[in-house]
Simulated assay, not measured.
Amino acid sequence: MGKDKIADDFRTPDGVSADVVAFTMVPHENVSVRRNLPDYELKVFLVRSDKGMWKLPGQVIDRYVSLDDMATDIVKELTLTTDPYIEYVGQCSDYTDDSGAWIIHHSFLSVIPYHQLDDFRRQDDPKSVDLFSIEQLDKLDIFPNHRKIIDSVYEYLQRIILITDIAKYFLTDTFTIAELVRNLQVVAPNFKPDNVHQKFLKTSKRGGILEGVIDAEGVHLKSDKYSQRSALLFRFSGQTPELSIY
Rank of each mutant, 00 (worst) to 15 (best):
K3Q: 14
D9G: 00
F10Q: 06
T12I: 03
P13M: 09
P13W: 08
D14G: 10
V16W: 01
S17Y: 01
S17A: 15
A18N: 04
A18T: 09
A18W: 01
V20C: 11
V21L: 04
T24H: 03
M25G: 06
H28I: 09
E29L: 09
V31W: 00
V33A: 10
N36K: 12
E41Y: 01
L42S: 07
V44K: 06
F45C: 10
L46A: 15
V47H: 00
R48S: 03
R48L: 06
S49M: 02
G52L: 13
M53R: 14
W54R: 03
G58D: 12
Q59H: 11
Q59K: 15
I61S: 09
R63I: 11
V65C: 13
D68F: 03
D68E: 14
D68Q: 15
D68I: 02
D68C: 03
D69Q: 14
M70C: 15
A71T: 12
T72D: 09
T72A: 08
D73Y: 02
D73K: 12
I74F: 04
E77I: 04
L80C: 09
T82K: 14
I86Y: 00
Y88T: 03
Y88N: 06
G90V: 11
Q91P: 00
Q91V: 06
C92I: 14
D94H: 10
S99V: 05
W102R: 03
I103W: 05
H105K: 14
F108I: 06
L109G: 08
L109D: 09
S110Q: 05
I112W: 00
D119N: 08
R121N: 11
R122N: 07
K127G: 03
V129Y: 01
V129W: 01
D130Y: 03
S133Q: 03
L137N: 05
D138G: 02
K139G: 08
K139E: 15
D141R: 07
H146S: 02
R147D: 06
I150T: 06
D151W: 00
Y156T: 05
R159F: 08
I160M: 11
I166K: 02
A167T: 07
Y169C: 07
T174H: 09
V181P: 00
R182N: 15
N183S: 14
L184V: 04
L184A: 05
K192L: 11
P193M: 05
D194I: 05
D194Y: 02
N195R: 11
N195E: 13
N195G: 04
K199F: 04
L201P: 00
K202M: 08
G207V: 00
I209W: 02
V213P: 04
I214F: 07
D215S: 07
A216H: 06
A216W: 01
D224I: 01
K225W: 00
K225G: 01
S227G: 02
S230A: 15
A231R: 14
R235N: 07
F236M: 06
F236N: 04
F236G: 02
S237D: 10
S237I: 02
S237P: 00
Q239C: 04
Q239H: 13
P241N: 13
P241R: 14
E242Y: 09
L243D: 07
